[in-house]
Lab assay of single mutants.
Amino acid sequence: TIEDAIKKLLKLAQKGQPYTFGDFTVTSEEEAKKLAKWLKKQL
C-alpha cells in the first residue's frame, strides 16, 4: 500500500539512503516527509 511505501521511505531516509519512488529521488528525511505529505494528498 501507499502507507507501507511511506513507512519504508521514511526508514530509508533516516539511514541516509537515497530512495527512488516513481519520478522522485529522496535523499533526506526532510524530502521524504514532503513526499509523504504529497502522497497522502493523492489518496
Rank of each mutant, 00 (worst) to 15 (best):
L35T: 00
L9Y: 03
T25F: 13
E31S: 10
T1L: 12
K7A: 09
K8L: 13
E30M: 09
L9S: 01
K33P: 01
K15D: 11
T1S: 08
K34S: 05
E31F: 12
P18N: 06
T20G: 03
L39C: 13
K33N: 10
E30Q: 07
K41D: 10
K8D: 02
E31A: 11
A36H: 05
E3N: 05
E3G: 07
I6E: 00
K33I: 14
I2K: 01
F21Q: 02
E30S: 11
K34F: 09
K11R: 10
Y19R: 02
D23L: 15
V26M: 08
Y19M: 05
K11P: 01
Q14L: 14
V26K: 04
W38F: 05
L9D: 00
E30D: 11
I6H: 01
T1C: 14
I2V: 09
K15F: 13
F24P: 09
L10T: 01
K33S: 05
T20C: 15
Q14S: 11
E31W: 14
I6F: 07
E31K: 04
L43C: 09
Q17N: 09
I6A: 01
I2Y: 09
K40D: 04
A32H: 03
K15T: 11
A5Q: 07
K8H: 11
L39H: 00
T1I: 07
K34N: 05
F21A: 03
A13I: 12
T1Y: 10
E31C: 15
F24A: 04
K11C: 14
W38A: 01
L12V: 04
F24T: 02
E29M: 14
K7S: 07
Q42S: 07
G16K: 03
E31Y: 11
E29H: 09
W38K: 01
Y19G: 07
A13H: 04
K11Q: 12
D23S: 13
T1F: 11
A13S: 05
Y19E: 03
D23K: 10
V26G: 02
Q42R: 12
T25I: 14
D23A: 13
F21H: 02
F21C: 15
A13P: 03
G22S: 07
K11I: 12
D23I: 15
W38N: 00
L39V: 02
L35W: 06
I2H: 02
A5M: 14
L39I: 06
K15R: 11
E30N: 08
Y19V: 10
K40I: 14
G16T: 07
T25L: 13
G22H: 07
K8F: 13
L12K: 03
D23Y: 15
Y19T: 05
I2D: 02
Q42K: 08
P18M: 08
E30G: 04
K37L: 13
F24W: 13
Q14F: 15
K41V: 05
A13E: 01
G22T: 07
L43H: 05
L12D: 04
G16R: 05
K11F: 12
F24Y: 06
K40E: 07
P18E: 07
S28Q: 03
